[in-house]
Design a protein around this nucleic acid. Sequence first.
DNA 1: ATCAGTTTTGGGAAAGTTCCCGATAGTTTT
DNA 2: AAAACTATCGGGAACTTTCCCAAAACTGAT
Lengths: 382, 382
Amino acid sequence: MIKCIKCHQVDYVQKAGIIRGKQRYLCKSCQYHFTIPEPISKSRNPHHQVTIIDLANELGISKSTVSRALRGHSDIHEGTRQMVLDLAKQLEYEPNPLAHGLLKNRTNTIGIIVPEFRHYFFPAFIIGAQSVLSKAGYNVMICQSDECYETEVANVKALMSSRVDGFLVSVTSQTNNFDHFKTVMRKEIPMVFFNRICPELETPQVVVDDYHGAFMAVEHLIEQGYKRIAHLAGPSSLQLSKNRKQGYLDAIQKHNLTIDNELIIDFDLTEEKARIYANHLLSLPNPPDAIFAINDPTAIEVMILAKSKGIKIPEELGVVGFSNDPVSTIIEPQLTTISQPIGEMGKLSASILIKALEEKIIRNERHQLLTELIVRGSSVRE
Amino acid sequence: MIKCIKCHQVDYVQKAGIIRGKQRYLCKSCQYHFTIPEPISKSRNPHHQVTIIDLANELGISKSTVSRALRGHSDIHEGTRQMVLDLAKQLEYEPNPLAHGLLKNRTNTIGIIVPEFRHYFFPAFIIGAQSVLSKAGYNVMICQSDECYETEVANVKALMSSRVDGFLVSVTSQTNNFDHFKTVMRKEIPMVFFNRICPELETPQVVVDDYHGAFMAVEHLIEQGYKRIAHLAGPSSLQLSKNRKQGYLDAIQKHNLTIDNELIIDFDLTEEKARIYANHLLSLPNPPDAIFAINDPTAIEVMILAKSKGIKIPEELGVVGFSNDPVSTIIEPQLTTISQPIGEMGKLSASILIKALEEKIIRNERHQLLTELIVRGSSVRE
DNA sequence: ATCAGTTTTGGGAAAGTTCCCGATAGTTTT
DNA sequence: AAAACTATCGGGAACTTTCCCAAAACTGAT
């Protein structure tokens, strides 16, 4: 007596042809087609992952049918589909992404290249991007360039040889040559630049309104009565440095203060250089009474140094940063800063990339998100 | 007249047989074998990556020979090897990792699962691990479980279906059931647990001496004259919580102070709960005069709260954290903490995993690195 | 039962690589 | 010159999946 493997009833099962040398049955009660499964896991090699061929052999059907059943293809008998799906579940079948990728020439993996992820910005960005990407079935590979051009080139090469389907990139402060990205573009692999973009490359870009953020920051300082405002700026290779500096300059000019080039220092965004130049500024014969720093880590360095020198913040020195890093609320006084929607940037960048990947059309749009001034203790004097 | 494609001389080139229908030449000057390469990139599809078959056709040899030449296999003519290597370079051949992986059943990818990476610890660990892994030719896929058990299970599933070769895992504070990891072990995929380990699983573990670190921290507070020392502890599901708490208890007992269970609070390591319980402790009728927090973010929350209540640190409240997060030097007063060699943990975990992967023997050793007490302002009263 | 028409299935090639085994060519020995 | 040997190379299977095309099975209608 044959028992239906689905409803477990015995009385309704009848033979329904022979398939691949195996007797096939149909349960008239639940309308379920099946063959008697082989006793499974007969000393199975644990390293052998179940394949569609295993499923096919087990069920006495062809691998094409199994493939179609799993893929939900249309012209497949409903009973067969169920049979395959059930066995797949039972044997914990997982499709082999390698075989699929080899055939489709895709890896479903996105490469992300960032200068670092010790501070708040890039991890927060990655979290945002990853949430969108993994929902769309993409995996993520993260590389740090360590603010080093050569490492960035190596990262691109490594991710290319891993055959990632697309890139999310924020360049190093050293990157002046973009040949490594041009290689990527030649192979028509979609790339989205964010935060630190690449102006000469025709790719989608996701940035914030750096100019306006910087302008707000400096105007705020001026309104608080600061007159000699310095700017610790990023390297001119980065578009965002240029934009923030322009915002700084325009705010100063708008309010008829004088621009003193001695108070504007470009540096490479490392913490030690931040410390050195902050020290330089505060030791000037005619030191600034406020500093607008290109980012929060730099502003924090300024504050720590000023406090160690006994300079009172905000009375003797106003400080404003950029990006609203959580440490800005831990330092005392709390740091006034420009907040940017980092998580949103990540999500937006990811969805632009996905669209480029799936619709094969890349619109080289520049997306600019809004910044906001957050006033805290480091810049407010009564 | 044929020109040698290597030394570019004309006079020394002679015919050297016909291979695959193509004339082959030998330059008597530089001893270089070659065929005249086809004119390359005749309207090549940019999506078509160069394969060994392309190289073989171009050179008029078989793909087996190309494969062996590239792999540095022994029984291959030196001239042929050079020829293949040169063309591969010229055409920017990159081996297809998908095809290789499909054949070898390996992806050369390691999955890392961490509860979060907003704070310092996990990014720093990942940086250390990645440096070793990428040097050994492995890629890395990072997943955040967000301190959520279900997400952790989903992460394991996702990484398994991506066919990662190995795992580096630090579990969530909720993880009490380890079935998802047992699935991994059943398939004999190597796993190394770090920091937040899994005591009931037979895998290599990399931890620090949590007990001794906590003991040092609390003994230091006692030596500074604090008498009513509270402990904001982690959930008892985590081994490290238990170890640190035991260190706390033993230090108190050693110095003949009384243990007050009112002063010991387990929580889930979220920041909001940290704030709530810190507030609870500081509002007790008989409040503690010091708090040893399970980690630095918690200690920071304590300090911020205490400062907002006007409680003087370290005079009225001593605070010690654990892990030497960089913020601990930014807050004022600076936070006394226990430092652990995070980068080393990452490197060690990675190299244990690589060894397991390459030597196929997994030694389930427990590696315990040393901690160090770093005394700063938050716990020192004159 | 036969036919056409539809539904469902199987066979086999393709993707890029590695590796075993057998086949050449070339060299040395008798 | 024949035999034995080595150095070098080619052929083809295997890994897993998808998809096209052809083949089989089924459905009704005659």
